[in-house]
Design a protein around this nucleic acid. Structure first.
Length: 142
DNA sequence: CGTGTGATTGTTCAA
DNA sequence: TTGAACAATCACACG
């Protein structure tokens, strides 16, 4: 929807260092204290590999936009099965993100709510190093 | 020296 | 349900 693609792409002309001003006129420009970064979409995951390949073919190319276009076109060209491995990876990111969200939500609740000093010593510093390192759990059936 | 930008699509959150 | 913004990347320009 937002096809505001106008703005001559010639970035060498307008010094549009202007950041994307949010439509927040009077809203507080305060950003979230610990805004959790969202996991890369399957497309980005796919692009990670694609960029390498693209650079291999176009080492002279330095425009990210070109890779983006090429990547998008290629992405649509892939089949679900081909994208499957990328999507699977994206899902994994989401799993981790879910955990982060818990912390984020917690902070929001505390922020929204008057954060009275909780004398509760919730400093369980018992670090569990052995947290489930569910890192490599590839169940991809090849 | 740091950072914003461009372009792609997907994803995710908030109201 | 919809909107709206943000996720990576990379070289370059500007203050």
């Amino acid at each position: 929807m937002k096809e505001a693609k106008s703005k001559a792409s010639a970035r060498g002309n307008d010094s549009k260092l202007a950041v994307k001003n949010k439509p927040a006129k009077k809203a507080k420009a305060v950003k979230d204290p610990n805004k959790p970064k969202r996991p890369p979409s399957a497309f980005l995951v796919f692009m990670e590999d694609f960029r390498k390949e693209y650079k291999a073919k176009h080492p002279n190319n330095k425009a990210v936009s070109v890779v983006g276009k090429a990547g998008g076109e290629r992405w649509k060209s892939l089949s679900d099965d081909e994208k499957a491995p990328f999507i699977a990876k994206a899902e994994k990111r989401k799993a981790d993100y879910e955990k982060i969200m818990q912390a984020y939500n917690r902070k929001q609740a505390g922020e929204a709510e008057e954060e009275s000093d909780k004398s509760k010593s919730e400093v369980h510093d018992d670090d569990d190093d052995d947290e489930e390192g569910s890192d490599e759990e590839d169940e991809d059936d090849d």
